[in-house]
Structures are given as C-alpha cells and as structure tokens.
C-alpha cells in the first residue's frame, strides 16, 4: 500500500489499518510476559498471523479493568522486571506490518520520565517533578514508532491533556465505548473518535468468554449511525465470535485474553507459543472475513455492506 494514499484518505495509520484491511483483527498481549525477548517473537508471530493492529500492554500494578487472565500476565511481566524504558526499547526494535498501540493505565503515562534522580535501587522514595506530565511518555511513544494509546482508566472527561499531546505527535488516543455509554456522552465521545471506537462488548473486565454477548449486538446497533471504524473487544476468543461480531456490523475484533492464555500455557516454550499465536491470529482473521463475506453473499437478510 502507498503511504501517500493512506495519508490522504484516512486520518491516521490506525484508521487506515482498519479500513484497508476490513474486517480488521486487533490483537493484544502484555509486554514482558514472560519476558520482553519473548514478547518480540510473539508480536512478530501475531503480525505474520494476520493482525492488522497490535496492542501491547505496558504493565501497571493496579489493573482495575482486567480480568484474571490479563492480571496474571501483568504480574508475570512485573515479576520479570518489565519497565517503561524496557518496553520502549522493545518497540524500538520491532518491525511489523501492523501498526502498534500501547495499552496502559494513566499513572504509567503520568510518571514516565519524571525523575532525574538516582535509580530506585538505592532505596530512596521516588521524587519526580512537582506535577506529573503526560508529554514525555507521548514523545517517547511517538519516537518508538507507536501509532496510538489506549488508557482504560481515562474517560473522555479527563483526557484533555493526553489528547492534546497525542495530537501534537500524530498519535491516536483510542476511546472505549461501554454498554452503559449513552445519550449525550455517546455523541460527545463518538464526535472525537481517534483511530477507531473501541466497543466494549459487555460490562465487566477483560477475559475470554464462550459466547458473544447480546450487549455486543445492542451496542453495534446503537452505534450504527456513526460513521467511524468500530472494533469490538472484551470476551472475544474464537473465529466464530469474530464472524458473528463482524456480521453484526463491526469493522474489527479485538482479542487479548485468548492469546495471553496461549502464552501462559506454554511457559518457557517460546517457539511453540509463537506458532500457536500465529495460528490463532489466522483463525480469528478467517472468522472475521467469514463474517464480512456473509454480509455480501447473504444480501437479503443482512444490511448493506458499508462503503467502500
């Protein structure tokens, strides 16, 4: 694909990745689980498997939006000594087709680059600058080649400073739309969608589920009138789910816990885990395509496919 065309047609790499590869597969894993070296191989495997966007989790000690699977991954990554700097160095090294996004909690963004003081190992308490600042993180993220940021504990109301910094550096700040997001707030958030709308499939935390929730269908129906790319996450674990969700009107699916489960199962057997991750990504992508195909083939029952 041509970069020039991309820039003219879409607002960002992230949006282009979804529109041009419709229906898109977005994959998530936690960086540093079980080590940053392994993460590099896993990301490459997901890229080969057909991911159109890859979210990398930067671990935070209090992940209130995560279910048990990703909590455990974050604990493994923290126990392995994963730091923001190590994370960015990994991203510096990565060369993937799929644009990369970082998913982390707001405090990690606020504290980054805050201290010129000696490292923590000397036993002293952290003494960052007077007020935490989001810009050093965004600058470093842009420098590392990341295309966007997702912050599960940063609702639109509090996102002003980060949004401004992201705009200055050409990064997308992806907002989450919950099943409870309605009315004026929904309009407000949809009017400032950046990259894509992350549609939370169900209330609660992240985690692989056995089926697609009815809330997903309701959410997609509610969002139909908004012409922005929509990707559905929270609970998506199989190709069939991907098919069903795309058929219901999504432009992409987001899968995390099901991939983290694979990594957890294989422990130190990096090669085997990478193979399975690639295969899983391919299965999910096929499922998404199946969903899109059924929309075009089965024209009588299904709504018209979106342009183009």
């Amino acid at each position: 694909m041509s970069d020039a065309v991309t820039e003219n047609e879409y607002d960002s790499d992230v949006e282009a990745a979804i529109r041009e590869n419709h229906p898109a597969l977005i994959t998530y894993i936690t960086a540093g689980d079980p080590s940053l070296e392994d993460t590099k191989e896993y990301v490459e495997a997901l890229d080969r498997g057909g991911s159109d966007l890859i979210e990398l989790g930067l671990p935070f000690s209090e992940p209130i939006a995560e279910g048990p699977t990703i909590q455990a991954a974050i604990n493994r990554a923290l126990a392995a000594g994963t730091t923001p700097e190590g994370f960015f160095e990994l991203v510096d090294d990565l060369e993937t087709e799929a644009p990369l996004l970082v998913m982390t909690y707001y405090n990690m963004i606020l504290q980054y680059g805050g201290s010129e003081a000696p490292r923590a190992s000397d036993g002293r308490a952290a003494k960052p600058r007077d007020k935490p600042e989001v810009r050093p993180f965004v600058e470093r993220a842009a420098g590392a080649g990341l295309s966007g940021i997702i912050v599960p504990d940063l609702p639109a109301e509090e996102a002003g400073p980060l949004r401004a910094a992201c705009d200055d550096h050409g990064l997308d700040l992806v907002f989450i739309i919950a099943p409870t997001t309605e009315g004026q707030r929904l309009d407000d958030i949809m009017s400032q969608v950046s990259g894509f709308a992350y549609v939370q499939a169900r209330l609660g935390t992240t985690g692989a589920r056995a089926n697609v929730s009815s809330a997903t269908h309701e959410s997609l129906a509610r969002l139909e009138e908004y012409d922005v790319p929509k990707a559905v996450g929270f609970g998506v674990s199989e190709g069939d789910h991907a098919a069903e969700i795309v058929e219901a009107g999504a432009d992409g699916v987001i899968v995390g816990s099901a991939l983290v489960d694979i990594i957890a199962e294989h422990g130190s057997d990096t090669g085997a885990a990478a193979e399975r991750l690639e295969a899983k990504a391919a299965e999910l992508k096929r499922g998404a395509r199946r969903g899109a195909d059924s929309l075009t083939v089965d024209g009588e029952d299904a709504p018209e496919p979106e342009q183009p």
């Binding site: 209130i64 939006a65 707001y106 599960p152 504990d153 940063l154 609702p155 639109a156 109301e157 509090e158 907002f175 989450i176 739309i177 919950a178 099943p179 409870t180 997001t181 309605e182 707030r185 958030i189 939370q200 209330l203 609660g204």
Partner: peptide, 9 residues
C-alpha cells in the same frame, strides 16, 4: 474521575 468508561454513567 479516572475510571473505566463503563463506570462514568
């Protein structure tokens, strides 16, 4: 109010 979107309403 630094919470997940689902809690904002």
């Amino acid at each position: 109010q630094y919470v997940p979107e689902a809690l904002m309403p």
